[in-house]
């Protein structure tokens, strides 16, 4: 299948006064047209940085792309001109931001903020057509269209999140980057939003990168999973392959072990020992080495290569060297 997005060996660092933070370290990822990929990882693993890089929206004062490229539909986004980027943002690729509280402009009405996307990308649309689209998309995300005249501060957190989602969907993008879109929502609204996004995928063939740390949502909603740790993809496969739990990266296995089992009577959750990788250093070997129970001397000194365990399922771990069973 044709790829809509190819990230090749992306490296991003944040240069702050105190330290250099290595957020993304040689991340490679491919996304097929129409695919819904769950990008899973802990806080600080580089999920949001990767998403922002795809739109070339990193804060240019501090962030620096030190290597790699992102090919969207055959074009490198880092090589795009300003006007090409403007055409890309909002209409081709759009993003649902993580924090709905701060992502909306406090002095503009909700209608105006959603309509702005259409004004920018569909200049031929009349005012009446735009109003109609905005009303439609608002009812689609479960907000009464007449509420569109309100300002963000008159909305609850969940409603703001839905406005952010409406804004991202209104121009019917080909690629949607959803950065923890349901974290701020309660479970019933969460289900509605997920259904809505699923419908969009079916109707328009929108590809999605769904950033989350909720494995439940991934299992339910996504077709494939990429697990990110220390700014690189350490495992990638379809949901069936990864959730089968036959072959997993030790980190992915411990993520699964963190989910409490309802069948057995467990008093405590099982956390992963150790701490998240200090992003101010780039480890020579495997980024998970310090927390891994299978860690060997080799893991600390040599970066593991991509090992395919089956078609479409790779794990970046020395343990899986030559373990492919279907060949």
């Amino acid at each position: 299948m044709e790829n809509i997005l190819e990230i090749k060996n992306l490296k991003v660092q944040y240069n702050t006064d105190e330290a250099v933070v290595y957020a993304v370290n040689g991340l490679s990822l491919e996304l097929a047209k129409g695919e819904i990929l769950g990008l899973v990882g802990e806080t600080g693993a580089g999920k949001t940085t990767t998403a922002l890089s795809i739109m070339n929206l990193l804060p240019d004062a501090v962030a620096e792309v030190t290597g790699g490229e992102i090919i969207y539909n055959g074009k490198n986004v880092f090589g795009m001109s300003k006007s090409e980027l403007r055409d890309l943002r909002g209409s081709e690729v759009s993003m649902i931001f993580q924090d709905p509280m701060t992502s909306l402009n406090p002095v503009m009405t909700v209608n105006d903020q959603i309509e702005e996307v259409l004004k920018i990308h569909n200049p031929q649309m009349t005012k009446a057509e735009r109003d109609k689209r905005v009303a439609d998309i608002l009812s689609l995300v479960g907000i009464a269209p007449e509420r569109g005249k309100s300002f963000p501060h008159q909305f609850s957190g969940g409603m703001k999140q839905r406005v952010v989602i409406a804004m991202a969907l209104v121009a019917e993008p080909s690629l949607l980057l959803a950065d923890e879109p349901t974290t701020a929502l309660d479970v019933t609204i969460q289900a509605q939003i997920l259904t809505l996004m699923k419908e969009l995928e079916e109707k328009l063939g929108t590809s999605m990168i769904f950033i989350t740390h909720d494995l439940g949502i991934v299992a339910e909603f996504c077709q494939s999973v990429a697990v990110i740790y220390g700014g690189e993809i350490i495992e990638r496969g379809t949901v069936e392959q990864v959730f089968a739990c036959t072959d997993n990266h030790p980190y992915t296995s411990s993520l699964f072990q963190c989910i409490p089992d309802l069948e057995t009577d467990e008093a405590r959750l099982k956390p992963i020992p150790g701490f998240v990788l200090d992003p101010r250093t780039v480890p020579k070997g495997c980024p998970f080495a310090d927390r891994c129970e299978h860690c060997t001397e080799r893991c600390r000194t040599e970066k593991p290569a991509v090992q395919y365990v089956e078609e479409g399922h790779f794990i970046k771990c020395h343990l899986f060297e030559g373990r492919r069973h279907d060949v």
Binding site: M55, L57, P59, L85, R86, D87, L88, R89, G90, S91, S94, M95, F97, D99, T102, S103, L104, N105, P106, E116, V117, I120, H121, V164, M167
Partner: peptide, 11 residues
């Protein structure tokens, strides 16, 4: 964040 949102819209 909302200025970033505006940029993300392609403004």
């Amino acid at each position: 964040d909302y200025v970033r949102t505006a940029r993300a819209k392609g403004a």
